[in-house]
Amino acid sequence: MTTLQRKARIMDAHRMRRAITRIAYEIVERNKGTDALAVIGIRTRGVPLGQRLVEQIAAHEGEAPPFGYLDITLYRDDLQTIAYHPVVGPTSIPFNINDRHIILVDDVLFTGRTARAAISVLIDFGRPRSIHLAALIDRGHRELPICPDYVGRVVPTARTEAIQVNLSETDGEDVVYVCDLPPLTEPQS
């Protein structure tokens, strides 16, 4: 594991809750309810975030949209170049996605490649009526023509920085940090 130097806290539990609640409202509003709506989290931290969105939507509308999650490992476009072994994680989409409005949920939107891979996974599962993208943090630096539909917070960053999203489900606390990537001391092999 690379050690990250935390340098600023950009979202605490309170703000995170507010951001998720707001996104949930926006989703309901834009879709005019929960009809044909479904939420799919991108592993790993998109999964608890997606579940929270579903809970918020249910609290508001009285009805929870179906929820699933997917693993993009096998769809990554950098499998040929990365230097570690990504573990293949589970994918579970226990409903038919055909003709549904799918909300894809991820923690951080960065280059857009993860979202691209997630869209490919979805399309192999069927033909949704639409796919929209929700991200807790948009940190910029897109490499693909992908634009989020729902964002918790836009955070301009440098490429030498990283965004660390901690969630109570996976990390014991709800907080987002901006960190410095450690300088590359050795030439990349």
């Binding site: 693993d71 096998l74 589970p90 579970s92 192999d124 599962f125």
Partner: peptide, 22 residues
């Protein structure tokens, strides 16, 4: 463990993933 995840892929409508292209 890895096979378990691939077993799930086999139940998808499109049973093909691009993982080892090339």
């Amino acid at each position: 463990r890895t096979a378990r995840e691939f077993r799930e892929v086999l139940d998808r409508p499109i049973k093909k993933v691009p993982a080892l292209r090339g």
